[in-house]
Design a protein around this nucleic acid. Structure first.
Lengths: 371, 371
DNA sequence: AGCAGAGAATGAAACGATTCATCCGATGAC
DNA sequence: GTCATCGGATGAATCGTTTCATTCTCTGCT
């Protein structure tokens, strides 16, 4: 007993020296442990644990003494210790390809809200759209035994082995936004194909006939689904899609700008462009300005995502809202429910996107058709 | 020995049943532990640990057998177990007020890059600008024994007690962007006052005399510093700041829009507005459009942050670049260095912001002065 | 041959929690 | 008075690591 006391004392002094001049908070000597609480309350650590976990088999008198000690020492249970023992933590690992694309913070925000309310915490990983980095994160973070994994896979990563490993380890997995075709588990995404179809059809309805698209990476499910939607609408309207009218780009402004320029330099310049997402559309708007063209007078532009900034841009961007916040929130909700022990069958949530007509789209100036 | 074997076998079957129909990856039975590696390699767990940590006191023969076993079982060391034992994990807790403000993802991205390269992982917390939520995160995440804490405090939170508790527990703490006046430890921020001064002086140099500002929350250090910079420039130029020319707003578009409207409705409409940040400036641009005014012809607008989207907006926003990525990267670098054992004295990094002149600012249309 | 010393390897203790079989003590029934 | 019962409380075992004092095994020297 006395040796134990001594060793604590010694360590305490050591740490205090290490962090010179930081004055110590009165009653909280270092990090109190369950053992210390038990000692102060005069009960066993098992009893403290029972209080902590709200088990009913604790007499009121004992419970009170425990709670008092906890209060007094400012005790906070170690999530590391608990996690190790229970083989599960309150973390939810979230992997996104690019946190600087505002679509993802929107989704992350939704996930964070739901997670926080339910006592879960988010570990955010940025894969940089790099399958190798993604794999590193996956392999390593699994050892923290998170409650769940919410993943938007990198464009080139179609592997789901690591995800399965999470399932095997008892964590639930939700694929978000981009769902690998092989994945049979929980997922949340919006109807990319429908959204693209609606947007294209809308342009057709305005009277456009020379409609081009800048698709996202075709290796990503969302990119290729949006292209399919575009093609379906064009086919249905029996409109030709000349060579060069389909460009492929990364989901960012730079690439949108570059591919946009390419479109605008075509012999037969398109009168409307459907962009894979808002960032790409922003790039197209910039390209238009550089070429001295006007939107929507010369070229209509439609995006996808409905980022906050699509209202700020001039002209305000006509776009397809895919409810990023909701996407994230739903994904987190699945993790919460499953962790609570819900055994229900696979949930594959599909949100219906909505076209938001703003200022960047208008009927074409009367000109020749494609022939 | 045989009982040990049996118990492992039993557990394996149990888990496998729990996750029905997920086919097992060949050689990776569940989550292999160091004990299993030791058994396969025919060495003690201590030796495996030594291999893992690159200690030189392992014979090549033994090392090879261990590495082979690791490879074969796809073993990954448990960061929970390691963290508990070492009383420290590879996590860096990052707390930001609002992840949907693109400035923060920019900074987070910088921090993530540096962290990842050095083997650290980011735990992202969104305080919602709510001091209570922030405190909850702080209290709880500390028990994960992170290597560091990078915090952008909520506007109303000037408390640094919890941060000190991290220091006491051996985690390093870096305040970012908004530095509480009482904080004496490591910090990274840009020279808000200088940036605001430069922006205001630039407007004055253009010939503006009726210059208004929409300041950020004055409870936040960055908000009040930028206002000070504005005031200093105005005072130096002996320009009056009429009542109503200083509005206070949250750092977001909605509030910028509202306060912008208020400014534009003043009897003496300002000919230039310096906004607390780009989001606020975006709101002002929207307000201008609604009022049928033109920028910069009728009113010049200058922002702060140089968000990616400040180029997309029309007119492109003149703004003060404060290098979000660098801010985050520097903060993470401090955590990395300190965790590596660097004892150097306090580091208070101040980045010099730079004015980026674009399209939203121009000399004023000749009109009356304020008198 | 005997021994010192160095290099390798071992294995028990510890980190902070949960879990569960066991034990304790009071009560009630007979 | 004896015994079964049961609600409370206990404390050892456990989770997967690291650490370190100890032990083991050589090698080389006298």
């Amino acid at each position: 007993m006395s040796t134990f006391h001594f060793s604590v004392q010694k360590r305490f002094i050591g740490k205090a020296e290490e962090i010179d001049r930081v004055d110590l908070v009165p009653e909280h000597p270092l990090m109190a442990t369950i053992k210390e609480i038990a000692r102060r309350a005069g009960v066993s650590i098992g009893t403290v644990s029972n209080v902590l976990n709200g088990l009913p088999t604790v007499r009121d008198a004992a419970r009170k003494r425990v709670l008092d000690a906890i209060e007094k020492l400012g005790y906070e249970p170690s999530l590391l210790g608990r996690g190790l023992r229970k083989d599960k933590t309150n973390m939810i690992v979230v992997i996104v390809p690019d946190i600087t694309n505002p679509f993802f913070p929107g989704a992350v925000r939704g996930a964070e809200d739901i997670a926080f309310q339910n006592g879960f915490r988010l570990v955010l990983c940025n894969s940089d759209n790099d399958a190798t980095k993604e794999a590193t994160y996956l392999r390593e973070m699994r050892t923290y035994r998170p409650s769940g994994l919410i993943i938007v896979p990198a464009s080139l990563s179609q592997g789901i082995e690591e995800a399965k490993a999470y399932l095997k380890a008892g964590s639930c997995v939700v694929y978000m936004d981009r769902i690998p075709t092989k994945w049979k588990g929980d997922s949340v995404t919006s109807k990319h194909e429908d959204g693209a179809y609606a947007a294209t059809k809308y342009l057709i309805g305005l009277g456009h006939e020379r409609i081009a698209t800048i698709a996202g990476p075709l290796t990503s499910p969302s990119g290729s689904a949006r292209l399919q939607g575009f093609r379906r609408a064009m086919k249905e309207a029996r409109l030709r899609v000349p060579p060069g009218y389909i460009q492929e780009a990364e989901f960012n402004k730079q690439d949108g700008h570059e591919k946009g320029k390419r479109l605008l330099k075509l012999r037969q310049r398109p009168s409307a462009v459907f962009a894979a997402n808002d960032l790409v559309a922003f790039g197209v708007l910039a390209a238009l300005r550089e070429e001295g063209l006007h939107c929507p007078a010369d070229v209509s532009v439609v995006g996808f995502d409905n980022l906050d900034d699509s209202d700020v841009v001039v002209p305000a961007l006509t776009t397809v809202d895919q409810f990023a916040y909701q996407l994230g929130a739903k994904a987190a909700q699945i993790v919460v429910d499953r962790t609570r022990g819900e055994k229900k069958s696979v949930r594959r949530i599909l949100l219906a996107p909505e076209l938001r007509i703003k200022e960047s789209s208008a009927p074409p100036a009367a000109k020749g058709r494609i022939r």
